[in-house]
Design a binder for these strands. Structure first.
Lengths: 383, 383
DNA sequence: GGTGGGACAGTAAGCGTTTACCCAGAGTCG
DNA sequence: CGACTCTGGGTAAACGCTTACTGTCCCACC
């Protein structure tokens, strides 16, 4: 089935079913070829044999970059169909060029924001004919090392490291190492949602405006009249957490509200952490009328703690989140939060990495803007 | 730097910096080699030259499956380090065996449940030394065809098609084609979260108990005393939607509650659809005291519509979802729903696909169980 | 003092493609 | 009518690696 010219093909088939039988006292070179297991996928040579042409002709027919007579093309295509032939990328990569894949390295794809980055990457990569490899590090530095190595082996066109991180000295050394190793292999390190590296390191950075977003969020609360804003930040030293903290303080300063150390807490970007910290702030009685959560997931925990304490939101306490995860609009009350263009982050990262490769001039550092999304979780303070 | 034996290495370096200069009237074969661009990643030959050994020795040193003297090993490793050498997977795949990647094909990775499947797949694949490729089809059949073809080219060890789908005749033909094409190339088609194919098709299926879960969910409502349960199912013909519908009806029958056609609605698994259908059911006055949403996202829409109509949940209307997405516990009220082991689905799929390959006997059809998670969104009817 | 064998290293075939180069036949043109 | 171009096709080198096959050296054992 699938054969467009049965008569010729059955003919060819009859000849080649002999498994390349030597047709005389030719060079025994081909005869030396080891017998392969039968379930091996068919090769271009099988196709050539079945079609009664040389492998070069098959290759050229499939590539379509060389004149081939209609009759030959037909025979080749028939053989391809009947053998279910697909080209072997490894062989192809070894001779002609193939586009390297885009490698996506993240902590955990389960997080809603990271999944959106992945979607953006996949979309942009796919539209440019690239595959996307996804790997998670689970916060293991050794594993990250291995993955970058692995991606180098895979000849990835770019390696995207996604998500905030602790940017200490060891981190910078590690990134510089990755960047150079990848660069020397014609690949590219792309940092997404992280601050830039020192100048001279061959890496591309796509970040978003954590500080500005945090400023808007905090300013929104302050404008509503709040003066005691509990800040539930991320881990100390964690890049996005520190940036958001800066934005928080910027806003306080801009509104002439004194900074209170006891309102500025650090912790994980988890629901549990938000819950615990809010509960503690309530029990120790530091006094606050609003909460700025470092992420929507943290806000979830804060909302739970407030609800548990019998405090109504936004009646008695206002809450703002960060990220605008999909369910933020479906919470009760719908959460006012800061939208981060995660999908665009992924798309931009791929675009920058590849366009650079093609030779277009392009920036090595892009910052996407964030935007406050006002919903129902903020109201002027009760007092 | 990185050289462990500087004296010897500088020596070797001096010799090989001449770029393989012919050391006499040897075969000119190597001299014919074309000059390559300088930014090309270094090859095993570069390493061999720098270490002053043959490529075979380098290969064996790195593979560690052959005796190599300590001194030689040291020289080779020094060369590897200084050249930042990494093996070329394509070349490696072409000769020795390399483990093929696991290909994950899904509609859209953004959905919370699919992301969890992806996480499970990535984890299991990674722990077995396999890469995971992620691709999204966006519900485009043509694109799915292309992706399967692409994965065949990539020599994927398995292709996982994830998520429910409309299982019509064309679908079965398509799957049979995929399965055979993959099987003949030594790969494997794995269907995740979909019903099995007709016997004889070489595919593995990992599904979960949609019908049982729907039964439990509905039974939970009926046991609480509800008699009019609005069912917000998925698209007509969609596998998981139909299975859940069967479970819904099973439960009605088991509890002796008459089936009412007007309470059994079909639509998308989207928030908007849940919202619209609930609103319509309210406005047409079909009368119901409980809602069984075909998915948590649909439940989200239903909750919104109920809230909008001023109906309290669970005071006046009870709601049950399906999927147990992460935020289900954080809704107001916390959503009673059916937990689906999505991560395990992914892990199991990979395990089955690969163990089969290694030759262990294993099932080709596994059904994971689902489980009702009782939270706060169900109460006996008010009347 | 052969002989067997273990440790270590090199040679080269082969993996499946692409493509530079070569060649035969058919026009085409001066 | 010979030189040339254009078509269509084959041959074989190259891509970077693994590994079977050969040695070579050295030591132990009859």
């Amino acid at each position: 089935m699938g054969l467009t010219s049965p008569s010729r093909c059955s003919n060819v088939g009859a000849v080649t079913d002999e498994e390349e039988g030597p047709v005389g006292a030719q060079e025994p070179k081909r005869a030396k070829r080891k017998r392969r297991p039968a379930d091996r996928p068919s090769t271009i040579r099988d196709v050539a044999a079945k079609a009664g042409v040389s492998v070069a002709t098959v290759s050229r027919t499939l590539a379509g970059n060389y004149p081939v007579s209609a009759e030959t093309r037909e025979r080749v295509m028939a053989a391809v169909d009947s053998l279910h032939y697909v080209v072997n990328v490894h062989a192809k990569a070894l001779s002609g060029r193939v586009a390297g894949p885009i490698a996506l390295v993240l902590r955990d794809i389960t997080g809603p924001s990271l999944a959106h980055v992945a979607a953006g990457v996949e979309e942009e990569a796919g539209s440019r004919g690239r595959l996307s490899l996804v790997c998670s590090t689970k916060d293991d530095t050794k594993r990250e090392d291995d993955l970058v190595q692995l991606m180098r082996e895979q000849h990835a066109a770019a390696v995207l490291l996604v998500g905030g991180t602790v940017t200490d000295d060891a981190y910078h050394r590690r990134m510089a190492g990755y960047a150079k190793a990848l660069d020397s292999a014609g690949s590219r390190l792309v940092l997404c949602g992280r601050p830039p590296l020192p100048a001279g390191v061959p890496a591309t950075v796509v970040d978003y405006d954590n500080r500005g977003g945090a400023f808007q969020a905090t300013a929104h609360l302050l404008t509503a009249g709040h003066r005691r804003v509990l800040f539930l930040s991320g881990a100390p030293g964690f890049s996005s957490a520190e940036e958001r903290r800066l934005g928080y303080r910027d806003a306080l300063r801009a509104h002439g509200v004194p900074y209170a150390d006891e309102l500025d807490t650090s912790g994980d970007y988890t629901r549990a952490s938000g819950y615990l910290r809010t509960r503690e702030a309530l029990s120790t009685g530091v006094g606050f009328t609003a909460v700025f959560a470092g992420s929507d997931v943290v806000a979830l925990g804060a909302l739970a703690a407030l609800r548990e304490a019998g405090l109504s939101v936004p009646g008695e306490v206002s809450v703002v989140g960060f990220d605008d995860v999909p369910f933020a609009a479906d919470l009760t009350p719908a959460l006012t939060t800061v939208r981060v263009p995660y999908e665009e982050l992924g798309r931009t990262a791929v675009r920058l990495a590849l366009d650079r490769e093609v030779g277009f001039a392009s920036d090595n550092h892009v910052v996407l803007s964030t935007q406050l999304v006002i919903r129902d979780s903020v109201r002027p303070p009760a007092g």
